[in-house]
């Protein structure tokens, strides 16, 4: 505990760094995945190939990608850019399939009605498909956010500092407290980001929760009627 109090500024610095690298990578991955997922849903044959292709990216070991990227991109070995790019690729790899499913979850009847009402194609994509894909997209984003926060700690092995640096340092010095604080920091960050995403979902998609509360009593009474009938 005293170590933590002595190093609170250092831990805070790592926490902030860990937070912004994860958030930026998650958002870039999300932004990449949206159009690919949309396309994959629209054109299943070619789209299926691209979804699988992105999925395969996820099988590249992260440490390998962290080390290979500087050679491919010509960036410095210690540059944070490598890590952000690698994490964005992983985020996109997971998110593409979810995004494709999310767009697939939008009711064709609703899209049909929007077309009939006179939405142009782009108006329909941005005002109907995207918001209605929202709940599934959010579910995917929450998974990706957590996995990105956890995967980033590996980057401390190649000298890009973050909360994972507390593990590597703790292992080297055989100092358990530092490792535990690293773990707590990462868990706290993952939980906070998850709560923020959940909150954003509620604010941006009030209709999704309104619908759930509306459906439940009806569904329950239907079951009750059936039970009575039987």
């Amino acid at each position: 505990m005293s170590w933590f109090l002595d190093n609170v500024d250092y831990v805070r610095e790592l926490f902030v760094r860990h937070a912004w690298i994860s958030v930026v990578s998650t958002l870039i991955g999300f932004a990449l995945a949206l159009p690919v997922g949309w396309y994959a849903n629209r054109h299943p044959r070619l789209g299926g190939v691209s979804v699988t292709g992105f999925g395969v990216l996820y099988t590249i070991p992260s440490i390998a990608l962290f080390i290979l990227l500087p050679g491919i991109l010509g960036t410095g070995f210690l540059s944070v850019t490598n890590v952000i790019i690698a994490l964005s690729v992983y985020a996109a790899a997971v998110m593409v399939r979810t995004a494709s499913d999310a767009f697939g979850s939008v009711s064709p009847a609703v899209l049909d009605a929007a077309t009939a009402a006179g939405f142009s194609t782009s108006q329909r994509v941005f005002r109907v498909e995207l918001p209605l894909a929202g709940p599934v997209l959010l579910a995917g984003l929450r998974v990706v956010s957590v996995s990105t926060v956890s995967m980033l700690s590996v980057a401390s092995l190649i000298g890009v500092s973050n909360l994972g640096s507390l593990f590597t340092d703790g292992f080297r010095r055989d100092f358990l407290t530092e490792i535990v604080i690293g773990i707590i920091g990462i868990v706290v960050l993952a939980v906070v980001l998850d709560l923020l995403l959940n909150l954003a979902g509620r604010l941006l998609m009030p209709w999704a929760s309104a619908q759930r509360t509306a459906v439940r009593p009806g569904a329950a009474s239907k079951i009750a009627v059936k039970a009575r009938g039987a």
Binding site: S107, A109, D112, A113, T115, A117, P131, L132, G134, W207
Partner: peptide, 22 residues
């Protein structure tokens, strides 16, 4: 076609309302 649709009313089975709009 988009202009044409905006000038014609359309009512479908299951109403086809946008679930995310009031």
């Amino acid at each position: 076609r988009v202009e044409l649709r905006r000038s014609i009313g359309y009512v479908m089975q299951h109403a086809g309302l946008l679930p995310h709009r009031k």
